[in-house]
Design a protein around this nucleic acid. Sequence first.
DNA 1: GCAAAAATAAGAATCATTCCGATTTACTTT
DNA 2: AAAGTAAATCGGAATGATTCTTATTTTTGC
Lengths: 137, 137
Amino acid sequence: MNVNEAMNLLKEQGYKHTGKREDMLQLFSDNDKYLTARDVLEQMKGNYPGLSFDTIYRNLSVFADLGILEMTELSGEKHFRFTCSHKEHHHHFICLDCGKTKEIETCPMRNIEASFKGYDISGHKFEIYGRCPDCVH
Amino acid sequence: MNVNEAMNLLKEQGYKHTGKREDMLQLFSDNDKYLTARDVLEQMKGNYPGLSFDTIYRNLSVFADLGILEMTELSGEKHFRFTCSHKEHHHHFICLDCGKTKEIETCPMRNIEASFKGYDISGHKFEIYGRCPDCVH
DNA sequence: GCAAAAATAAGAATCATTCCGATTTACTTT
DNA sequence: AAAGTAAATCGGAATGATTCTTATTTTTGC
């Protein structure tokens, strides 16, 4: 999924095309990392001086509901990143310094679902935390 | 680790023995599930009418720092549970209705660390979410 | 029992997030 | 292109979890 595909998906679902939405998506597309609502506001308030948190949060929520963004909670804040589309379902290492991510090839859910008979599995999370090579120095 | 071992660890580390701490640990020991600060307060305010959130949060933080409790963030709240000691390091399924957990035998970190040369790995999380058999009905 | 240090209570403060009412904007229909 | 409608946005207030502050109380070593 790229920005255009995401905007088309929004239109299909009855959401309107706004510059703020497109710029938000472009911001996530340009960054291979998790961003908070505050990060987004910081990056965008240059172009949109009156941009409100409500707009950011509402759109982040819409994007996440449609699967355009992935969300994870980290140190008390929601963090979002563009959903990777070029590959199968996978997970991420997350740098706690800069937020950049690295893909983990394997998903541990394989072969595990069988041991949850009678359970209703709605999701799972596998994340590795630490510092990336750039931030270790 | 049980309540007594946890209290001894606290003493070793220079923390004082208080009834509130012991009761908090007993509460976690009696519950095989994740609890929030509010849950703890609800359960304890019968015996300690004036119990304050500050005390709960401070002690939860101490317990987590010493490895007595495990913490995870779920729907915007911190949740804590007694660290399992009877077994090797492992992970949990978490019921989103009642909070009860089920052990996952396998840890996906095995064999993965090798692919993170140059990274400083500080932790990882593997959790499966859904509803347990009791809550499915 | 006494003194020092830690723990606690009560409430204020903070921070992320959500809600609300009023206004503006995007899109559809003339 | 103008008008109408519903969605989107703004600005600020409200909420909810968590942390901080100050004064008081409790634990513990002596």
